[in-house]
Design a protein around this nucleic acid. Structure first.
Lengths: 377, 377
DNA sequence: AATCACAATGAATCCAGGT
DNA sequence: AACCTGGATTCATTGTGAT
């Protein structure tokens, strides 16, 4: 059973039994300094992202986006954030075993600073891994690409960090016998897995999905290993560690999160040792964008598309739209427009000329899909 | 036709015609310093990667992997790489227009240092975009995840970099009418597209696929824009720019790459101008004042406007405002007020009665715009 | 009971042009 | 430069309540 350990209680050199599978309450660096050196196998860290938001953001339906504007994510400057990053990374490095590895997750707001600092401090990057979200929040104003991923850095303690754990064969076996790539596809944490407060609102603004942590632990830890999370939050790391037969240590400042995490972890039933096989992520149906036919040279800008009866002819443009006269838009929009319908499947409606006959462009999509399948959509 | 310009030839302040659509030979920073400030719309940069290879890498069959170990890719230390990065980023920033944007591509070896330096110098990150490779090189040793992606940083010159080009509507239309995400899927550059030297080996170690550059230019440039590539290499940026009706400027040190790139670009046939039209949305349409509908007689003072469900009725006044009871104001203000919202698009909220049904006044705006076009703006 | 319509929401550096 | 205002903009999933 997990319990809270106040730092003040640990006036002596702490024995492992006092902090293993517990949440240490307090500041991240201070708590790390109380742990013995070289005692941790793997660290998973989800530090503040240092988002710099300017005013409110509304959805097109005028509802307000619930932004991450908590105090813990506010920093005076890049310099202040760098100093914070350096401090916790140094403290984390001390407690890591020589053959240990560390995972840090972040977004473009902070991950470049974190990665550079990790290299400066002597960590040796093994991979950067991309978490592709199946259901990311849209870009509501239409001024940028939809921010659909986050980045994780996986690094060993030293360049000569030989002997770190990487369960290559198990990952490959769980991935249709293809070696695991550096881009992973998972949904964000919603529904029943998402912890709620008494109001029914999300308890923690940035709760990570358990599937993500499970992939990380199945890849880089062995059963019985100790996984440390210096920004424990809602305790996903602890819950997954317990379920997978790993030990955890959490560090967290806010009592409300500690209480919720303890309750959550207590409810977890570990898998039987024999069942600790790797969980596979969702495989998405590869969706093909019309523009990818242009990318791959299957369709050339300036080409003409026809409907099955050649009543209409549309011209393909370089931007991946099609045009008839003054009208331009997606294959679906223009297909609907010429027929006077609300909707149309452009893939089956439009055809291209081949050896005298007409073939639906859906056939080209099938060809394009063949090249995408291994990469998982 | 493209041509090589030696820096020595440019002893005077160079005219645009002297460097547009050419490759400048020489050191990246020195060449950038010869270009006029604020003259470039978009920069694409593929800087050296600072790969730290410890000895030769061998495939399982003992054949040697042709790794990136050219001497331009070796750096003494992180410090030297940071200084190099800072120098070329500063020089690049000077030539970028205030509303210009920059793309930088890299791997985990260098992208964190580059991204942190970009933030330090005042660039404002708009997105990080992941290039997922359909066919990445396997990890031969089985000690890490297959390195299946590279990272691109897209940034504006300043935080207040308003008005940068982003062809949102075109990208969405080309992507099954769903907004474009930050993770892109493309094959690596192989086959006929890959330039070879006389021995039949690859000419350049890191030639990027044209589809990747095409996506970048279709997203962030307009036809006629100037795209600069300070590490031109095999000239992918120039070839795609020419094909898409954009101008390019390349900077490259090695004559062999310059020769190959010039030959490659000369062979490119641009798409027809008509096929390069970029789909734009409402944002790009000229402003229409509601009062101009009254001026042109499309709306009469005293007319009544309704919301779609006829819960509210507003009266049009001669000055172009609408009124409900004591409240009067713009179509937007009154629309927001009756709904209790902060904002409202009056053009789509308010309707007028026509043959029994309700039609949005946006339809009248469309008609007004047609009249403006005929009158020549 | 099954289906459908609608609402809610997630780590967000999310406007442009004029006065 | 600061302020004001017109008006443009969303995808996947879950939960709820009506049909």
């Amino acid at each position: 059973m997990s319990a809270v350990r106040l730092l003040d209680e640990l006036s002596h050199a702490p024995q492992q039994s006092e902090w293993l599978d517990t949440i240490l309450k307090g500041d991240c660096v201070a708590a790390l300094d109380r742990l013995p050196e070289k005692s941790i196998d793997v660290i998973f860290a989800d530090p503040p992202y240092n988002l710099q938001l300017d005013g409110d953001l509304h959805r097109p339906d005028q509802s307000k986006v619930d932004a991450v504007d908590d105090d813990w994510d506010q920093f005076e400057s890049f310099e202040a954030y760098d100093a914070f990053t350096r401090a916790w990374l140094l403290a984390a490095r001390r407690v890591l075993k020589p053959n240990g590895t560390i995972w840090v997750i972040g977004s473009y707001h902070n991950i470049f600073r974190v990665g550079a600092k990790m290299q400066d401090l002597g960590f040796w990057i093994l991979n950067d891994v991309v978490w592709r979200k199946t259901n990311p929040m849209p870009n509501f104003r239409g001024r940028r690409f939809q921010n659909a991923h986050e980045t994780m850095i996986w690094a060993s303690r030293d360049q000569k960090g030989k002997g770190y754990t990487f369960n290559y064969e198990a990952l490959k076996a769980s991935n249709d016998d293809i070696q695991m790539r550096s881009d992973w596809l998972f949904p964000i944490c919603t529904g029943g897995e998402r912890l709620k407060n008494d109001n029914g609102d999300k308890l923690h603004p940035t709760q990570k999905p358990e599937a993500l942590l499970a992939r990380i632990m199945m890849a880089s830890t062995k059963p019985g290993d100790v996984v440390l999370d210096p920004f424990f939050g809602s305790g996903t790391t602890g819950a997954v560690a317990k379920r997978l037969g790993r030990h955890f240590v959490g560090i967290e400042r806010e009592q409300a999160y500690i209480d919720a995490a303890n309750e959550r972890i207590d409810a977890v039933r570990p898998f039987d040792e024999a069942d600790l096989t790797v969980l596979t992520g969702k495989r998405a149906e590869p969706r093909v964008a019309f523009v990818s036919l242009i990318d791959t040279g299957l369709v050339t800008p300036g080409a003409t598309l026809y409907d099955a009866k050649k009543r209409w002819a549309a011209k393909v443009r370089a931007d991946g739209t099609v045009a008839i006269g003054d009208s331009a838009g997606s294959i679906h929009k223009i297909g609907a427009e010429v027929q006077g319908l609300d909707a149309c499947n452009g893939w089956t409606f439009w055809h291209y000329e081949r050896s005298g006959g007409l073939t639906p462009i859906d056939e080209l999509r099938r060809i394009a899909r063949l090249g995408m399948e291994r990469a998982g959509g």
